[in-house]
């Protein structure tokens, strides 16, 4: 289900990445889209729940989440957060391991950058379910660092080490 949202207000620009990941998963994995947007709502409420633009934006996002929950009545990962937690964690780890394997095999490409990047975003989304354990925390830092590093190497025509 594609989301038609108003533009992200300047105060909430940092949640834009999660909304982009949500949009990329619309039609591919409804639970991933749902929890990315849920995380974006949580973060937005922490950052700015006072300015009229932010209130309008969060309200629209919330409308969308409520609708998504109704439209995915048979999706257990959306309706039961413990299942959702496991689903997002497995999905993020799968992406992370794919990228890590490609990296260790010296196969660098935009898809590796994208996989590390998305895994990093989804490790953030896991905060929805509580504090991250040490392994996830480590993977999150590593995935984000690797995405930035390989991206920089590709851009500058350097061979990642």
């Amino acid at each position: 289900m594609a989301a038609k949202l108003p533009p992200v207000p300047p105060t909430l620009r940092s949640v834009q990445h999660y909304l982009k990941t949500a949009t990329e998963h619309d039609g591919r994995d409804a639970a991933v889209s749902y929890y990315c947007r849920l995380y974006a709502v949580q973060k937005s409420l922490q950052i700015d729940k006072k300015s009229p633009d932010a209130v309008k934006f969060i309200t629209t996002l919330m409308d969308h989440l409520e609708q998504a929950k109704k439209q995915n009545a048979d999706n257990e990962a959306i309706h039961t957060e413990t299942i959702g937690h496991a689903h997002i964690e497995q999905y993020a780890l799968k992406l992370f391991l794919y990228a890590d394997n490609e990296d260790r095999s010296s196969r660098f490409g935009k898809n590796v950058v994208k996989s590390f990047y998305t895994a990093g975003m989804l490790f953030d989304v896991l905060e929805t379910f509580g504090e991250l354990n040490d392994d996830i925390e480590k993977n999150r830092k590593y995935a984000k660092w690797k995405a930035t590093y390989i991206h920089k190497c590709i851009k500058e025509g350097l061979q990642p080490q």
Binding site: Q42, V55, K69
Partner: peptide, 27 residues
């Protein structure tokens, strides 16, 4: 006054967003 009314309305809207999120997650 109008200002008090507006700020009460804004505060109610914020509470509403927080409780809407809580309800969504509990359903």
């Amino acid at each position: 006054s109008n200002t008090v009314g507006q700020s009460t309305a804004a505060s109610a809207e914020q509470d509403d967003l927080t409780s809407r999120l809580a309800r969504l997650r509990q359903q």
